[in-house]
Nucleic acid binder design. Structure first.
Lengths: 144, 144
DNA sequence: CTTATTTAAGACAAATTTATCCTAAATAAA
DNA sequence: TTTATTTAGGATAAATTTGTCTTAAATAAG
């Protein structure tokens, strides 16, 4: 479904939301430990999230990654997915045809449309704040 | 969503259904041309479909790939997907956790459940015969 | 039975994704 | 201003997926 990079990116963002809520910044080492991911690779993914303005980075002593407190509630799953995997999952043809649309549909076009729309809606409506809250309350987990 | 191999496999199976309906066998060269895929790679994927008994192969002169006529109507998208990509798309965790279930869910477990179930239902209910019919009538296309 | 034809299988190669490492650049703190 | 610390970025490597090629095995037809 998602690339490994995207899976790490989503988990990392949830953890950063969690920490930002406490007014704390986190570094790649801490993040990688918390989400059980390779540290250097995770750092790369964090760079992409910063470039796409999903998260913010601060260099120097006491630096790290964070999210503006008043922006936290606005970030959706779709923002991280787009930043890392692009929007192929939102637009791409289920069978990889270059020019698949209503006028020239692939064999599964209509069947996939409903699924893809449901996925898109879910990703665009689910906030990281909501996901972070469930981690905090012990209702869900970032690893194992 | 699906691997390239799986995309080719689905398209190939549709074409084989189409030809089997006419009582004709097809070879990898013909298939690759029809679905615009690399021939040798497609041949590998056909082997997997044969091993998983989605299609049948006949060696020797006038040989090729086919599907038993009375089996055609029973084959579903899910059969080809399972043969090539396994069932990770049906069972796997959206964030790649090893042990993700109701008791120990990943942060997106519930959100993904609905999507995954919808996808699973669609794949298990959609027959290749139906897809082949739409190709035949010009309502959908295998390439471009 | 022999032969031509076709799929099966394994080794190999290219491309992409995942992952690591080292150095540069930025910057906060002292 | 200097220094310690931290992210950014590029080069490299490993693993996986995608793709190719050659030979073996099977088998239908003659």
């Amino acid at each position: 479904m998602f690339s490994k990079a995207c899976e790490y990116g989503i988990k990392a963002t949830i953890f950063i939301v969690l920490k930002s809520h406490e007014g704390k910044r986190v570094n790649p080492k801490e993040i990688a430990k918390e989400i059980d991911s390779p540290e250097a690779f995770t750092a790369k993914i964090l760079q992409a999230l910063v470039r796409h303005e999903v998260i913010v980075s601060v260099k120097g002593t006491y630096g790290g990654f964070e999210i503006d407190k008043d922006k936290i509630s606005t970030i959706k799953l779709a923002d991280a997915v787009r930043a890392i995997d692009g929007d192929s999952i939102f637009n791409g043809c289920g069978l990889g045809l270059k020019s698949c649309d209503e006028d020239h549909p692939c064999p599964v076009h209509d069947k996939f449309k409903d699924i893809r729309d449901a996925l898109k809606n879910m990703l665009e409506q689910t906030s990281f704040e909501e996901l972070a809250f469930n981690i905090k309350s012990g209702a869900s987990f970032l690893k194992l």
